[in-house]
Every structure is written in structure tokens, then in C-alpha cells.
Simulated scan of single mutants.
Amino acid sequence: MSIRSWLFVPGNRPERFEKALAAGADAVIVDLEDAVPPADKVAARAQVREWLAGNAPDDSASPTPIYVRINAVTTDWFADERSLSALPRVAGLVVPKAEDAATLIVAAAGAHDALRIVPLIESARAFAALDAIASAPRIERLMFGTIDFQLDVGIEGDGDELLYFRTRLTLASRLAGIAAPIDGVTTVFDDAAVIEQEARRARRLGFRGKLCIHPKQIAAVHAAFAWRDDEVAWARRVVEATEASGGAAVALDGKMIDTPVLLKAREILASLPAPLA
């Protein structure tokens, strides 16, 4: 299953690590960057390393993948933090301020074989090198750092103002053959309707995941990336009509069912959980 919800937990708050894993998100990101003040960076890294090396539940006990957002390559903490990639419990590194493929290759040096890299795209330079970043080794998905990007380029607004850039991420991901991108955070966490609306907007633009800054956002994100009952019913009707036609051209609700429509219907049905025996 594609990871829909990516929940941040501060790297200097080890008492929250287990709670984050139990919150219901598809993945947890232990954050050593924005969530940790400079004076606490070294201590936080040590706490995260200790937890991941010995105290974090293994995959069989807690299948929720754990990612670590390290600090940018331009910082003094990058070299030491990227070494966390050697720990088997780390599913991947989230690399902020990713602006070239070379940085991502360095970030993965010494990593275990299964480790994946998730670049945070949050600057104009990153978009200038987007295809190379998406095609770098070990890249799992692209992640849109919407707030930092707006600051970098002087854009005000998270809606239509970022439409071009969101579609660029979707296109680059498709061309590179990697999974669909992950949208940035919604800053409110106590309004489920707003969270779901923004996640659905991202889904319509080809995104298949969203960053979460609070456990309260998870349910709304999952709802946004789930197929609605009417969408599932439509998909079943399309498949049934096609099968009943015996290969002849067929229409449904006044519209012809061509191959792309049928493939979309099958995609919806294939993504549904298997019925209980």
C-alpha cells in the first residue's frame, strides 16, 4: 500500500516516539531538522540513534516504517546524521533542501541496502534540477516542502499559486518511474474538513500522500486518499458493463467506456481491501 500519511515527531522528544508509532499513520518521520533547536541537535541525534538501535520495535512488532529527517547538507550536522542510514530500522532518510542529485548520493553513503531517500523539494534550485533529483539512486518519492518553497520564491498562498509546481512534481515522478509525490503540511490540525479538502486537492493533482504535523490530521488524510462509496460503485458498474458487452463498444451514463476509463475503474477496485473470508 502506498504511504498516505507521514507523521512528524520531534527528534528531541523521545517520550513521543512510541506514541507516534501508535497514532495510526502509515509512516513516522523522526525530525532532526526544524523541530530541534540548534543547541539540542547533537543530543537529539544521540537519543534517536539509541532508540533506533535498541529500543524501537522491529518491523514484525511495529510494521510502521520509520524515516528520519536529517539536516541539510550545508549544515554541520549533516555528516553525522546521515550515518543513521546504516541502522536497519530506518526505512529512509528525508533530505531537506535537496537541490541536486549529488547531495542525495552522499546522503545514502554507507546506508543499508534497503534504505530509501525522500528528497524535500523546497526551493527554486530544486525545481531547476527536479528531473535529476527524481532519477537519483534510491529515490522513493518526492516530497513538497510548500512553506519553505513559498518563502524561497516569494509566493503567497498554497492553492492555485502552487498549481504549476505541484503538477511538475507529479510529472517528474512519472518520468522517473518512482511513486507519486507527497504534499506538504496543512498548518491547522483541528479542522478535519480543511485538512481533507487540501489532501483531496493534492490527490486530484496526482499526489498520493501528505505530511502530517499532528495525529489529529491522520484520519482526514486517509479519508482524502480513499475512494468514496460513489466512486467504488461507479467502478463496479464500469467493469460489469464492459464484461456484459462481450467486447463490444458500450456506454454508461451517456458516456462511452474506452480503455482508459476501464483501467481507472480496475485501479479503484484493485486498491480496495480484500473481503474477509
Rank of each mutant, 00 (worst) to 15 (best):
Ser5Asn: 08
Asn71Thr: 11
Arg174Asn: 02
Gly246Arg: 07
Asp253Tyr: 05
Val95His: 04
Ile70Asp: 00
Ala124Gln: 15
Ala101Asn: 01
Val48Leu: 06
Ala107Tyr: 06
Arg266Ser: 11
Asp148Arg: 14
Ala25Tyr: 09
Leu263Glu: 14
Pro273Glu: 06
Lys210Ser: 04
Gly209Leu: 04
Ser173Lys: 08
Asp229Gly: 09
Ala134His: 08
Val28Ala: 06
Ala179Thr: 06
Ala109Asn: 13
Thr187Cys: 05
Asp59Tyr: 02
Glu198Phe: 03
Leu163Tyr: 03
Arg236Tyr: 14
Arg89Tyr: 05
Asp76Gln: 14
Lys264Gln: 15
Asp31Leu: 15
Phe78Thr: 04
Glu122Val: 12
Pro38Tyr: 12
Glu50Gln: 07
Leu276Gly: 14
Leu87Ser: 06
Ala39Trp: 08
Ala192Cys: 03
Asp190Lys: 11
Pro181Ile: 00
Arg237Ser: 15
Asp59Val: 09
Ala223Asp: 08
Leu32Arg: 05
Trp6Cys: 09
His222Tyr: 09
Val238Ser: 07
His112Asp: 11
Phe144Ala: 00
Ala226Pro: 05
Pro275Thr: 07
Arg168Asn: 02
Ala274Tyr: 04
Ala136Trp: 12
Val261His: 12
Val42Phe: 14
Ile257Ser: 08
Asp258Thr: 01
Ala248Ile: 02
Ala132Arg: 14
Lys216Gly: 09
Asn71Ala: 08
Ile147Ala: 15
Arg201Asn: 01
Ala129His: 15
Trp234Thr: 12
Phe8Thr: 11
Trp51His: 03
Ile139Phe: 13
Arg45Phe: 07
